[in-house]
Design a protein around this nucleic acid. Structure first.
Lengths: 237, 237
DNA sequence: GTCTTCATGTCGGAT
DNA sequence: ATCCGACGTGAAGAC
């Protein structure tokens, strides 16, 4: 039987190197003290500290400190990485092109290393997204307002695609922008952009209404809505 | 000497439970087959699969599959978590309030567990940010245009704070919006929002120019800039 | 590839 | 606590 897991406690660099190089489809974790350098879209350096480094078989690299949800440094999927021993350090280099980016993790000491052949066929089932909110309105358009009739989703305008495009009971065009959470000024600007684009394109005399749908709205956003004669409807996803 | 690292290979649930409960300031990693449920701002379920679960001493929880840079499920820092054995499963529950969110990871089998007392005093030094671009312009305002004179940064308007507020050689007000990377329609809307707000506020007759500074601009954004009589200057951070 | 927008975005700074 | 915008945002879908 092939072992799905290999581990090394307080490994010397040769052992760690061998584990990384024979990782294949395994997920690798490295615990130890390291420095990190990154150069690409931006550039960064990180002094020595104890961290968890994760190497995924898809090329992802994550450097996690003991704090925070986000990795302090990383490389995205699709990167190639290699490991070497240099100057008594275990060095992991990850690289990608377009954009050209490289990450170098230099371990003085590796405290623990694992390679785990993980198999995972499951897919996340997520509800409460903006798409769910859209389906809710399409199934029951009166949630927006009585007489509302959806005509299209993702309808294109010169300024981008509108979430829901429809008509009200008076025959006016209605543009609906959906947000799954409380909205700020950016969402108002987005809606305004679509309304302005359609105002330009449609026949003179056609009234274009813009409706922002979200659970709630900040004061600033509310003021911006009023200034631009845009509307707000409170709905949760 | 206190061991900075504890590990358990193919541990029974009691062993894993003990390791988690005595983790203290340690960073914990769990490798094994689990199901995950999340309920909070949204809700999700994830069927059984082999994953890496990271428990940080600050309350962060990360569930990583063998693919992707992002965790498939997570909890942010500040959460409290507890572990239990239920129905022959090791169950890790993480919870927070405001918003009320909970994450449940249910392991059928844990293949490996570690607790690592990581110490990390280092801070990331990052260059190539928007702040760097701002400093570059403030040090040499002619990069924007000859005669430009910065007057303030983060100047408040009714629509939000402007990156750089200044004057051109003709005494016109200049509003500068900075982006460290190629910009799309959203950045144009943002700049337009600030310009419109100041146009309203300032005396009649004062000309307010809006300048978007970024490495480059998409076609749509370029067209939007032109329609609103806003300007673009190409600069890298 | 580029473009556009969503995200359980996360994070930090200011109020 | 909320608001607001930056982020090496990442990820997905359309073209």
């Amino acid at each position: 039987m092939t072992e799905a897991l290999r581990t090394a406690v307080d490994p010397d660099h040769e052992t760690t190197l061998e584990l990384i190089e024979t990782a294949g489809d395994s997920l690798c974790t490295l615990l130890g003290r390291c420095r990190v350098e990154y150069d690409g879209r931006a550039a960064s350096t990180l002094d020595s500290g104890d961290r968890l480094v994760v190497l995924k078989p898809d090329g992802t690299v994550l450097v996690h400190t003991d704090e925070g949800q986000q990795p302090v440094n990383w490389q995205p999927p699709g990167c190639t990485h290699e490991a070497d021993i240099e100057d008594d350090h275990l060095v992991v280099r990850s690289h990608r092109t377009s954009p050209d980016e490289k990450l170098v993790v230099r371990f003085g000491r590796v405290v623990h290393a694992t390679a785990y052949e993980a198999t995972d066929a499951a897919e996340l089932v997520l509800t409460g997204t903006e798409a769910d909110l859209r389906e809710r309105i399409l199934a029951e358009p009166s949630l927006l307002e009585p007489g509302f009739e959806p005509r299209a989703t993702e309808r294109e305008t010169p300024a981008g695609a509108v979430d829901i495009y429809g008509q009200d009971s008076n025959g006016n065009v209605v543009i609906v922008e959906l947000k799954r959470r409380r909205v700020g000024p950016d969402a108002v600007s987005q809606l305004n952009r679509y309304v302005a684009a359609l105002d330009r394109d449609l026949h003179e005399g056609t009234t274009v209404r813009g409706v922002l749908v979200a659970p709630s709205v900040t004061d600033t956003a509310r003021r911006l809505l009023d200034e631009r004669s845009l509307e707000f409807v409170s709905l949760e996803p």
